[in-house]
Amino acid sequence: MRHNTVQYGGLSLPAKRGYIFPMVLFASLAVGLLVLTISQFQTSNRQKYQHLNDYQAAFNIAYSALVEVLADIQSRQWSNRSFKSGPKDRSASLFGGSYNLRVEDHASIEFMFNVKIRVKFKEKSHLFYWRMQYNPSLLDFTNLFIPVYYEEYGDPANAPTDIDSKVDEIMQRRKDNQPKIEEIAEKLRTTDTVKEALEVVGIDPGGVNQADLPRPGVVTINIPPADLTLKPVSVLISAVDPAANHIIKSFNFGLDVTELTPDQELLLDTLADLLKDQQPDTRIELRGHASSDGSAETNMQLSIERAQSVADYLIASGISSGRISVAGFGETQPIASNDTPEGRAKNRRVEFVLKEIP
């Protein structure tokens, strides 16, 4: 009987009739499916990257529009901002897309404003929302504008019509939750193991590996002080609170002390130079405070005298007395617990509230 053969190298191998064609067909189908799968995968990734690139382009348009608003405020000064008398609208084409912008003051919070930017790029629309706080600090030009809230809506139709009110609610919940957050943080400091820490934040440690191990210790990094001859302007600045009180850091007093130290006089020299040379249209309200040591009447007098000491020094440094006001609050507005010596030391202070002359 005659058999079909298959040449493989220099050998002639017998082959069964009908065996080769199905194998070739199967291999062709497998290769075709592999190519199709790879093609679909590449198409999917290409679409994802394209979507990401389109979103990035839309964000760049919105952020550039926001920067123009901030630059305009900085050049005009806050008291002359373009939206002082009401909402300001603006439209423009940029980076192959276009935007419509509205900026307006917050309804009730001073130095707060909202920016809504609708961007259209490649037939797709986005709505970007920023709530910004203007920080009129004389001594911290790097944080002139502070973003308080940000949101992006892929489809503006899905955005609530009363965005400002919704953001107000979110900010209020943040404020309401802050004591609970601080309570949890305080409890976390005293936990010894990962398991205890997870239980504090409400996580079941049952499925966590090595949950009974001790928590990692605190690593202390010692950075040697830089040998700089510049005045320590950076220590003057602290975080801005919601009421726009701009507080000089560490301007504290000893127990029953109202006199200024040489270091405090150096800080006031720096402040006076900036007030005279760069911010002649700024008023300063000096608010004195005291700890709970002593009687309420004594503490009220101490707080007034501390603020007055600062006022007298600034006036002697060339700041007009008409730009300065003094107030004393005694022990009624602590920023730390009066139950500890450290807390009472923080409460014996003077706050500097900076306001533009209307």
Rank of each mutant, 00 (worst) to 15 (best):
I315V: 11
L66T: 05
N80V: 07
V115H: 06
P334V: 08
D277H: 12
E199I: 03
S28K: 00
A92G: 03
H51K: 09
I170D: 09
P262C: 05
N338M: 04
G202T: 09
S317D: 03
A243R: 02
I324L: 15
F95P: 02
Q56P: 00
Q210H: 09
N45P: 00
G330A: 07
A336F: 08
E265S: 03
D204I: 01
T340V: 04
L302F: 14
E285A: 08
N252E: 06
A311C: 04
E169N: 13
P232L: 09
A311E: 06
F141V: 10
T258V: 15
Q7D: 09
E356A: 10
T37D: 13
P358N: 14
G97E: 01
V69K: 06
I304D: 08
I117M: 05
T142C: 08
Q278L: 11
R287K: 08
I61F: 02
R131N: 04
F128C: 02
S250W: 06
D293R: 00
W130H: 14
T142M: 12
L13Q: 07
V67C: 07
P341W: 03
V257S: 08
Q333V: 12
E123M: 06
S303G: 14
R90F: 09
A197C: 07
R118E: 15
D281K: 07
S137Q: 08
Q74H: 05
T261S: 14
N100K: 10
S321N: 11
M300Y: 10
N222Q: 11
N100P: 00
S39Q: 08
V208W: 10
E152S: 13
H289S: 15
V200S: 12
W78E: 10
A27F: 06
E297D: 14
V353N: 11
D227Q: 13
L271N: 01
S325P: 02
K249P: 04
Q301Y: 04
Y129L: 10
L266V: 07
E265W: 06
A244I: 01
P334W: 00
F253Q: 07
S44R: 11
R81H: 09
M112H: 12
F251E: 02
V218W: 09
Q301S: 09
M300L: 14
Q178T: 11
E285C: 00
Y63W: 03
P341N: 09
L139Q: 12
A211G: 03
N158S: 15
V218I: 12
S75F: 06
D140W: 03
Q42D: 11
L314N: 09
R174W: 13
S39C: 03
Q74M: 05
S64R: 00
G32P: 00
I237R: 13
L29S: 10
F329Y: 15
Q210P: 00
T5I: 15
Y153P: 05
F352Y: 06
V6S: 09
S44T: 08
S320E: 12
R17E: 15
V194K: 07
Q308F: 04
S137P: 05
Q77N: 09
A211N: 11
S309C: 02
F59I: 01
L127P: 05
S28W: 00
G18N: 15
R287S: 07
V350D: 05
P136Y: 06
R131W: 04
Q279D: 12
S64L: 07
F145M: 07
F145Y: 08
T298S: 14
W78K: 04
S337W: 02
V24T: 13
M23A: 12
V326K: 10
N143P: 03
P14E: 13
A62Y: 07
